[in-house]
């Protein structure tokens, strides 16, 4: 009898802990939606397309920040994805080589690396020499954050291909280049694309790497890739520190937009992941 009670208590305990662990996630989604939705409804389409309102006067829009996030994510992908995929292929194809083994462990470290240090690094090599924050500096910082995710997913995707297909492809007298890029890469396609999207979703929401690199831009849309650029996370970070009520409202609206962008990349990904059979 006592044993049964103990077991039930134990189960309850675990269930409560588990609930506590996921509660913040739902609370975040709930509070962002509850406080952001009224702002989005009040601001209408102009909230998505317009420029920032003056302090204490209306909502205006976060158009430059949304555009900036798209520019930064695209530029970062342009820089990061090719390098990352090649790195993943290298780590998968030459796992025994010293460089291959090193790559593998470095990627794992890079994934957990404090992203603010990436921002500092890019500030040193780009922002200071150029004398200005810029879209290209922000994109480079995001590319560095993105690369390890994409590389690790690519490597895993290649490693999950059964050895027999590798043998079959080499057995036909194909060069290694053709085996990898014309045969195996197509079999690993889903894994590689998954990695790319996860990397993009990750950097679309990053703030720290942009703090010392992108600079922010709120009243005009785009000034050139060598000029400062806006980003939604950066805008939120700046607005909540202001003493104006309307800026706090805008920050909530922007948070909801960011959450929606993130979910738009992430949910289809999670759903489609089930189809991948390995």
């Amino acid at each position: 009898m006592l044993r049964e009670v103990k077991e039930k208590l134990f189960l309850c305990g675990i269930a409560i802990m588990a609930a506590l662990a996921v509660l913040p996630l739902f609370h975040i989604i709930y509070s962002v939606a509850a406080r952001g939705l009224p702002v989005l409804l009040k601001g209408g389409l102009k909230f998505l397309s317009g420029t920032l309102a003056p302090p204490g006067d209306g909502l205006g829009g976060i158009g430059p920040a949304i555009l900036g996030t798209f520019i930064l994510t695209s530029l970062a992908s342009l820089i990061g994805l090719p390098i990352a995929v090649m790195t993943g292929v290298y780590a998968a194809e030459y796992p025994e080589s010293i460089l291959g083994r090193l790559t593998r462990s470095l990627l794992t470290i890079m994934m957990e690396f404090p992203t603010i240090l990436v921002g500092l690094f890019v500030m040193q090599i780009l922002v200071i020499p150029m004398g200005s924050y810029s879209a290209i500096a922000g994109a480079l910082a995001l590319a560095i954050v993105m690369m390890p995710y994409v590389a690790v997913y690519t490597e895993e995707a290649f490693k999950n291909i059964p050895f027999t297909y590798r043998e079959a492809a080499f057995g036909l007298g194909l060069t290694r280049f053709k085996v990898v890029f014309r045969v195996l890469a197509r079999m690993a396609k889903k894994g590689i694309v998954t990695g790319m999207l996860i990397g993009m979703a990750k950097v679309a929401g990053e703030t720290a790497p942009l703090l010392f690199t992108a600079g922010g831009l709120n009243r005009i849309y785009f000034a050139g890739i060598d000029r400062p650029v806006g980003a939604i996370p950066l805008l939120i970070y700046n607005l909540v520190q202001q003493p104006y009520e309307n800026y706090h409202e805008i920050a909530w609206g922007a948070s909801l937009v960011l959450l929606l962008i993130f979910l738009a990349i992430f949910l289809p990904l999670r759903l489609s992941l089930k189809e991948v059979k390995l």
């Binding site: 027999t164 057995g171 007298g173 079999m187």
Partner: peptide, 20 residues
């Protein structure tokens, strides 16, 4: 590469490329 073009191979597990 030349060797493998002259000496083809069939494996224990039937392994046509599944995506082709």
């Amino acid at each position: 590469i030349e060797v493998r073009r002259k000496i083809g191979m069939v494996f224990q597990l039937p392994n046509p490329f599944p995506h082709m």
